[in-house]
Every structure is written in structure tokens, then in C-alpha cells.
Amino acid sequence: MIAYPAMVDVPMELVRHLAGLLAAERRMLGTRRGSRALTCFYQALLVLIWFRKAEDTTTLGAGFGVSRATAYRYVAEGIAVLAAQRPDLHEALRRAADEGWAYVVLDGKLYDCDRVAETTTSVKGKSIDAWYSGKHRDFGANIQAVIRPDGLPIWTSYAQPGHLHDLTCAQQQGVTAALNWAAAELELPALADAGYDGAGHGIKTPAKQPADGRALAVANRTVNRLLRGLRWQGERGFAILNGRWRTLRHTTASPRRIGDIVAAALHLTHFEYRYLIESR
């Protein structure tokens, strides 16, 4: 391999923040001083380069003078300590209400991954690919997110198989129940697209076109236009995550780990946006 100088555009404060989380993890595990190939600082830098530039892990490890297995282990450890900072959904909603936001946005995304051989049984009793989405015609994991009206995601879910619809994923993870609670107790409704129709009174969705082909009533068209006008900015949430952390655009890891990878990227994003309480 040929080494060459390179740079990564992450703030030094973020490297130190992650290094602090890794140091706390090592103390909890009882890791002896000097027994690791890299210090916490350089492990943090390795992890952030992987997130920011989606570097090949083997090549990235070689650049830091560690083996392929060590590089994979260090990245996995970094993902784990970051994902452990995942905010609680009810606390995130309560904070959004306390900050004065009038609503939040619920959205879902299929995170692309390599083809997976795992199968499951469909509602029709047929064997199908568990991680294949017929809607997107691709393999991936379904991730749900709750986003502020200005586009900053405040919570992301665990990964679920791509064959599931957004509404099913939101219901199975208790997202719809939490949002209905927020609308009733915090006066914080959620806006969502038509795929969440039937999620509950706290989640506002557009009126669907009548099945008989009749045009929507003027009142319904007006409400739909209003919802689109309010929701579009919030749907930037996934774009903020994917645009900043390139490793989210495609993963070769197990799709079950995608939820933790996205949660880790969410914590990094919150730090850069000064949304963490300790970073304010």
C-alpha cells in the first residue's frame, strides 16, 4: 500500500468528545493502560474518518498501523458507544415541546445494504426476502425518525426489515403511541405523509384521493397543501444525516446494525449542531 497525506473535516472538539466516550468505555471494561494499539484519541479519529468519508476499513486500519481485525473492532466499538447515547423518544418529544416547537415530523427511510438471504413469510403466506422493499426495489433496513420543523432529527429508531411498511415499523416500535401521547399531553402533534394514514389522531396525514376517482373536496385539498408546506422542511432530517456522514449511504454490514449506525450518526450530528446538553 502507498500512504498519502489526507484531511478530514470534523472539529477537534468532536474527536475529543468521542475519545472521552471511548475512555469511559475502556475504564468500565477495566482495560489496562498501554494495552491497546491506538489511544482513545486516535481510535476516535479512525471512527470519525469511517463515518465521514466511508473509507474501506482495511485500508483505513493500515493507515493507522493496525490490522484489519483491529480496525473492524475499533469501528464497532465506536459505533456502540455512540449509539448508547441514543435519546429516549418521550424525552426527545418533551424537549421539543419545551423549546416551543408547534409540531414535529415523522418520516421513514430505507437504508441501502447489500443483498441479504434471510427470508420471512408474507401476510399471504408466501416466502419473501425479509430485507427487500418492494416499494424501493432494493435491499435495506427501515429506519423511522422524528424531526424538528427546522430539519434537525431528534430521534431515530432501531432497524427493521425492509419489507415492512413505514406505519407497521412505527407501530411495532411504539413510535405512533409516543406521538399520540405527545399530541394529547404536550400539545405537540406530528405531521407525516400518507403512508402513515390511520396512525392515530396525534399524527396528521394528507387526505387520500377517493377510490372512485372523484376529485378531493376543496377543504381537503387546502389541508393537504398546508401539510405539505409545513412538512417539507422537516423531511430534510435524513438528508442532514446522509449528507454529512457518507457511510450511511450504503453499508456492507448486517442490516440489523444499521439502526445503531444511524443512532451513532445522530449523536455526532447533535454534537455538531450543539444540541447535546453538555455541548451547549
Rank of each mutant, 00 (worst) to 15 (best):
M1F: 12
P5C: 04
M7K: 15
M7R: 15
E13N: 06
L14C: 07
R16Y: 15
H17S: 10
A19C: 03
A23E: 13
R27W: 05
R27P: 00
G30V: 00
G30S: 00
T31W: 02
R36K: 13
C40R: 05
A44I: 07
L46Q: 00
L46I: 02
W50F: 12
E55G: 00
D56K: 10
G63P: 09
V66P: 02
V66C: 02
A69L: 01
T70K: 03
I79Q: 01
A80E: 14
A80M: 10
L82W: 06
L82N: 04
L89M: 09
R95E: 11
D98V: 15
W101K: 00
V104I: 02
D107M: 08
G108T: 15
G108C: 15
K109S: 15
C113D: 06
E118T: 12
T120C: 08
K124Y: 13
K126H: 10
S127I: 14
D129F: 02
W131E: 08
Y132K: 00
K135M: 04
H136S: 09
R137K: 15
D138A: 13
I143C: 10
V146G: 03
V146D: 03
P153A: 02
P153L: 01
W155I: 08
A159K: 09
Q160S: 07
P161F: 13
H163A: 02
L167Q: 08
Q172S: 15
Q172R: 15
A183L: 02
A183M: 04
E185F: 10
E185S: 10
E187W: 04
E187K: 09
D197E: 12
A199F: 04
A199S: 12
H201V: 09
H201C: 06
I203Q: 03
P206H: 03
P206K: 04
V223A: 15
N224S: 03
R225S: 06
L226W: 11
G229A: 04
E235P: 09
E235L: 11
R236D: 02
F238A: 13
G243I: 09
R246S: 15
R249P: 05
T252A: 08
D260Q: 11
T269A: 10
H270P: 00
Y273G: 00
L276Y: 06
I277V: 13
E278L: 12
S279L: 01
R280P: 01
